[in-house]
Design a protein around this nucleic acid. Structure first.
Lengths: 197, 197
DNA sequence: CGATATCTTGAGCATTTTCAATAGTAGTGG
DNA sequence: CCACTACTATTGAAAATGCTCAAGATATCG
């Protein structure tokens, strides 16, 4: 195990690569995506400090992971990590807990992609990202968005224009406020109303 | 552990219920879905013989599971199963393998929901269902579809009309053939062409 | 055989995409 | 310091994919 650093836009691992490593993020934001041969891209999630990457037992990575900001992480060799697990059986349980939770998150996101309209998708994204940030950084009204508009669109199954228009409208309506590298949530209740639950 | 039977349309477990059981399917098909309060539904997957249900370690089920056909399954008490795991450590590893695989499947489905057009989604569904069936029943040109059109639509993030129209067109084009309770794949290559890879 | 579910098909419509033009923003080198 | 380039974001107008609504057909089941 040793610490590794990644520059923005650099790749931790790529879709199809042999899954030889396992990471835990200590700082920065990582984009996880599946790319189609014709260039279409689906961002299946964003990773932040505390998250695990590559804990799947599949022989190859199904997705690509690349850094959106400077990233620091702990890298483990897969084989060595598996030996470690034999000595600490509760570690395997922990891995499975994390994986089950990821699966639950993935299933919730399928609902967003399959059954939510554009406005609901963007509201869902802002609120979920805000919640995750709160658990790491504490309660802040200011929401950093290290990912670009295209990334948000590729996460929500929309085009960059639809994301831009939706955010622009909410800025006009004073529901959010434009700040450098992110937004400030002025009226979270209105965003929750959009989701209707 | 004991065997249990379910009639079509009966529920194995429901979204929000305490996750007290764990199942392995021995026969039949199960529909797994997440329901929004306003009635919109996303089917996150279908389970067939050999599949595990409720292996997540979250305290409550995130989704509902109900039988599409008569179903037989083995039911395990969660607590007792966990004790069993303490005696057989490689069982925990197996569970994690299954969960990782489910996660990979979920991520691939996100691509379908977020970035594929209607025609591609239906082609993807037919081909994936066909592949899964081959692993259980061997190579058959006839593809049973125990789920209804509305279920397919709810799985693909489409309306029943779009699914119906797409299948109807492929029947006219002799790419598939209408048979009772399913379809016969006449030209799998054409369906793969739709996916463009 | 009648009643209820599900499925199909058509026509019009709406949300979101596409296309295109403009405006920022950052980084680079003269 | 400023011009130049490249990249990203915004905005408008037109187009299209898939949806809604409605009617009819087919299947299922008591």
């Amino acid at each position: 195990m040793h610490h590794v650093n990644f520059q923005p836009k650099s790749t931790l691992f790529e879709q199809g690569d042999e899954a030889g490593s396992l990471y835990t993020l200590t700082s920065g934001t990582v984009r996880l995506h599946y790319d189609l041969p014709d260039g279409r891209r689906q961002i299946v999630g964003f990773a932040m400090p505390g998250d695990f990457l590559g804990l799947s037992l599949e022989p190859r990575f199904g997705i690509t992971a690349d850094a959106l900001t400077p990233v620091t992480a702990c890298r483990f060799d897969r084989h060595r990590f598996m030996n470690l697990i034999d000595k600490h059986p509760n570690l395997m349980r922990k891995m499975h807990e994390v994986a089950s939770h990821e699966l639950a998150i993935a299933q919730e996101h399928m609902v967003v992609l399959g059954r939510r309209r554009a406005e609901e998708r963007v509201a869902s994204f802002l609120l979920k990202w805000w919640q995750r940030l709160k658990r790491v950084q504490g309660n802040t009204p200011t929401l950093p968005l290290p990912m670009g508009r295209q990334d948000i669109a590729d996460h929500l199954g929309l085009t960059i224009e639809t994301v831009s228009r939706t955010l622009a409208r909410w800025m006009r309506e004073r529901i959010i406020l434009d700040v450098p590298d992110g937004v400030r949530i002025l009226d979270a209740a209105k965003l929750e109303d959009v989701l209707g639950n």
